[in-house]
């Protein structure tokens, strides 16, 4: 240490506790709002194609990430899709071990060129393989709140 004075006694090395008290309320945005409402009210997955790039974004976007064009069209996609990758998560948000490991997957809905991240259920890790057909399991209509968690999980079809 380039300091002239140091801490020499272990008891002097102490910490000061604090936090970032951040509570946030996020809007889903122009495109997200419409996507989540359609899913909630009509059980329908929507995607937004970019005619220039050929991408079909699911969830849909207001703009194309690649060429920045405005995406005006909306098309129906899914609800089934193919598994692009998966993992089994053993630690929680607090960094502690989970009592029950959680399967997570990347699912490319039929008609989309992008993949959604969601929870997987109804399968063991050994049953899963890339390319496997998956289908969403939705919350009962009355309990939906216009959030991505209106989809409970995806399961093998």
């Amino acid at each position: 240490m380039a300091l002239k004075e140091r801490i020499n006694l272990p008891g002097e090395a102490r910490t000061w506790y604090g936090e970032l008290p951040v509570q946030s309320l996020y809007t889903a945005g122009d495109a997200g709002d419409r996507f989540l409402k359609t899913l909630k009210e009509k059980d329908q997955f929507m995607g937004s194609p970019c005619t220039a790039c050929g991408e079909v974004y699911v969830p849909p976007k207001l703009y194309c990430e690649k060429c920045m064009a405005e995406l005006k069209d909306w098309i129906k996609v899914g609800p089934d899709g193919a598994l692009e990758s998966w993992t089994e998560v053993h630690v929680g948000l607090d960094g502690k071990r989970l009592a029950q490991a959680q399967l997570v997957g990347l699912i490319r809905l039929d008609g989309a060129t992008t993949s959604m991240v969601h929870l997987l259920a109804g399968a063991e890790p050994n049953d899963l393989c890339i390319g496997m057909r998956m289908t969403p399991v939705m919350k009962p209509a009355a309990k939906r709140e216009g959030a991505i968690t209106d989809i409970l999980h995806f399961r093998p079809k």
Binding site: T87, V89, G92, G105, I148, T149
Partner: peptide, 18 residues
Amino acid sequence: PVYVRPLCLNSHFIAGLE
């Protein structure tokens, strides 16, 4: 915050998928 955080997953899951 809209599409991923509500799933309440430890961020290492992204590395697992990758």
